[in-house]
């Protein structure tokens, strides 16, 4: 449970970052990437991944189109937009300042 809670507010940030680096990915691919890169520490709550993706799509940070996978199946692939990159920068700064603040509290306590 703890692992998932940690992810709640930062899911958009992670999705944007992964899309920015890895290019078009479908929902499952994004989930797998997050897990793999965090060495399985961060596990995506899949139930909230898709609504989050759709909200980001509505907000214009990412865009989606139907693509065919290597195994010849239709999947919806997401990619980051220019607005998404801008959002990513903002989110990164915010994230860093929060973690820095948390670190500071932890060190002094």
């Amino acid at each position: 449970m703890a692992r998932q809670d940690a992810l709640q507010g930062s899911l958009p940030l992670l999705v944007l970052k992964i899309l920015a680096r890895r290019g078009p990915l479908h929902g499952y691919g994004i989930a797998v990437q997050i897990e793999a890169m965090s060495e399985d520490i961060l596990r995506v709550e899949e139930g909230s991944l898709y609504p989050a993706l759709h909200r980001m799509e509505e907000a214009g940070w990412i865009k989606a189109k139907w693509a065919t996978t290597p195994s010849n199946r239709r999947a919806r692939a997401y990619d980051i937009t220019a607005a998404g990159r801008k959002q990513l920068e903002g989110e990164l700064i915010r994230w860093r300042s929060i973690t820095a603040a948390v670190d500071a509290v932890l060190e002094q306590a």
Binding site: H26, G27, Y28, V32, Y50, R74, A75, R76
Partner: peptide
Amino acid sequence: DELEEELRFHLEARAEE
């Protein structure tokens, strides 16, 4: 339909793995 298909793909991909 589209939402359905997207979620189905996810389920299948996860199961296959």
